[in-house]
Design a protein around this nucleic acid. Sequence first.
DNA 1: AGCCTTTAGCTAATCACGTTAGCTTCAGTG
DNA 2: CACTGAAGCTAACGTGATTAGCTAAAGGCT
Lengths: 196, 196
Amino acid sequence: MPKARLTPASVTEAAAALVDEVGFDNLSMGLLAERLGVKTPSLYKHVTSQAELAHRIAVLARTEAGDVIRDAIQGRSGSDALAAGAQAMRTYVREHPGRYAAANATRPTGPDDPFIPASERVLASWAAMLSGYDLDPGQEIHAMRTLRSVLHGFATLEAAGGFQIDASVDESFTWLINFIDQGLRAGAARGSDVAR
Amino acid sequence: MPKARLTPASVTEAAAALVDEVGFDNLSMGLLAERLGVKTPSLYKHVTSQAELAHRIAVLARTEAGDVIRDAIQGRSGSDALAAGAQAMRTYVREHPGRYAAANATRPTGPDDPFIPASERVLASWAAMLSGYDLDPGQEIHAMRTLRSVLHGFATLEAAGGFQIDASVDESFTWLINFIDQGLRAGAARGSDVAR
DNA sequence: AGCCTTTAGCTAATCACGTTAGCTTCAGTG
DNA sequence: CACTGAAGCTAACGTGATTAGCTAAAGGCT
């Protein structure tokens, strides 16, 4: 076997770090090669294309996000689990905006794409968290989608610099979590009459 | 003055239509030129660069979105205004996913960028709608951000094909609107103790 | 009506990437 | 100590954005 300086994994890791610095849109093979102290074409010994590289970053990101959220929810339930999970996700996106963008930009390449189970693990964590609210079974899917929407929306708006006014974004986020929490608790108490 | 077949405005309009068809990421000067029955370099007589073209699409999109939302809210208040505004926005995004992506991808180029007032008009509509809920003044900014987050998050997730499970997405959206409506009404009734 | 200026659109050329082809060299194996 | 295989390199190609310079037609002016 030869030198073995770079590997697909190490290249992906470096690309993920790069993308968090310069933004997902500014990822280029040349820039990555420079960071790795190598000439551009050499990268193709480890990844087949820039598209594949982006996809690898996406899988990495979704997996990391799944871990972070699962760990945050671990051992908590109800409001605590919601707050911890949501904060964990926001923190992850703030620390890894490029990775998060990569994960959002990708689409499963096929039925056995590892991106699929990685995504399912994230959803499973949210589902586990929601189960603590005793919602009507028919409402769970809607609650899940609403939850995903707020968290994803807040994270992307924040990452895009969408919150201009000089009111604390942290405060807005805890307000948001509280808002969702109250709604979920009320919905559970009220039963299915929330849905129209 | 010469022929005047194309104008900056007509090029932008064609680009916006194109982007809704092929996706914002797939916008290319060559493809647009082909649609307009012109050679690629000719486009530079009307727009200075692809970046500027993308920005023009963004301004157009944000302006259109502002109009659509304002019109929907017109004459309604409270729950009705929320539902109408939210539905109008979702419809706009579904019909113009490329434009919406362009608007999200852009960043103001300066203090006199028309994108800024266009964005402010959207925010003003949401603010007008929220004013119907009699929220505590200190809460309004958080409610606004939460509202923007859910709507933006839902729209982008839907556009990205993020809702896989075969439960009606329409139904989820009305559930979401209802969820927000109930929360806002409860928050108004309860006063500032929602915020922590 | 006929000239003149202005400029839309064209062709040819340049530049920046992503990607491919083929060569070279070193690490580990026999 | 030669041998093989893959890492990394240089050279080359293709595509898409952009620029330079030419051509010609439209509208104004006399």
